[in-house]
């Protein structure tokens, strides 16, 4: 997607022709510029009020944070040295986590393609198709992966399968919206030419639209995969498989050395994946 944000040209230099202003003029002009408008003041008051409300509702308090600092230091201190005996388990579970993320992403994207086609105005011009699909997609997109995981754990039981389903469904709705936007920005000339040869819509999708948009789609898919690996490492917290389950367990056993090992493994994998995917994406587009 190449959304071009038009930069509003800075009007100041044009309105005030460049003449060497005296220091005093300059200061006064700046002083006037710095005077906040009523809107700004009202906005600031609103933000402060919102912050106050949200921090009281989360029990955020300065003294508690200060009191807690020694505990945090103690916690971090006990994480060293990392427990290397945990390493084989952590690696094995990281593979499971990657498996959940990759499988979920692939099937999620496959589900997203038909949804996004239905939601793209230039592919299905009938407003009721597009609008219905968009509403469904937007509603389900708002459900976080962890919630899907909870749902699927109660549906199919504990384990990696529930996690995979959660990632798949989360991806399908998230990516459907992305792909629909990608399709709507497509150059339709070849599509129209193919229509004029008598080709069916399904054939035009397979021969014109997808070949044109595949690099952009692949690039976004890699980005989504990154996010899904992060999400999959947390799914274990609700029993949906992956490394998060082990993390939860070691935390309960106060095995902070093992916790450190797990965190390090996640860190290394997520960072390498990040590097790899940004490298691949640069080559795509």
């Amino acid at each position: 997607m190449t959304a071009t944000i038009e930069k509003a040209p800075d009007p100041a230099p044009e309105k005030a022709p460049r003449q060497a202003p005296t220091r005093r003029d300059e200061i006064e002009r700046l002083a006037r510029l710095r005077r906040p408008s009523w809107g700004t003041i009202a906005g600031a008051v609103g933000v402060v009020a919102l912050l106050g409300w949200s921090s009281t509702s989360t029990g955020f308090s300065g003294p508690a944070l200060v009191d807690g600092l020694p505990h945090v230091a103690d916690f971090v201190g006990r994480m060293f040295p990392p427990n290397l005996e945990e390493l084989p388990v952590a690696i094995e579970l990281m593979f499971e986590t990657l498996g959940i993320a990759i499988t979920g992403t692939v099937f999620g994207v496959l589900l997203a393609i038909p949804l996004s086609l239905l939601a793209a105005r230039n592919i299905f011009p009938q407003p009721w198709i597009r609008d219905t699909t968009r509403v469904v997609v937007n509603v389900f997109r708002a459900i976080p992966e962890l919630m899907w995981a909870l749902l699927f754990v109660s549906a199919v039981g504990l384990g990696a399968f529930a996690g995979t389903l959660a990632i798949m469904v989360g991806t399908a709705f998230g990516v459907a919206r992305l792909f629909a936007d990608i399709f709507e920005t497509a150059d339709m000339r070849a599509w129209d030419a193919a229509a004029a040869t008598g080709a069916r819509k399904s054939q035009r999708i397979a021969w014109v639209l997808l070949p044109q948009q595949l690099p952009t789609m692949a690039s976004y898919t890699l980005l989504v995969l990154d996010g899904n690996v992060r999400a999959a490492s947390l799914l274990g917290l609700v029993g949906a498989g992956g490394i998060g389950m082990e993390l939860n367990q070691q935390l309960r056993l106060f095995e902070y050395g093992s916790v450190m090992t797990i965190v390090l493994v996640v860190l290394v994998v997520v960072m390498s994946l990040d590097l790899l995917s940004s490298y691949v994406r640069k080559r795509f587009v």
């Binding site: 070849a190 193919a194 040869t197 069916r200 014109v208 070949p211 044109q212 595949l214 690099p215």
Partner: peptide
Amino acid sequence: VGRASVLSNVLVGRLA
């Protein structure tokens, strides 16, 4: 279709 091969562009004419 710029990203597709020359052959695949011509085959579009056979799809119908």
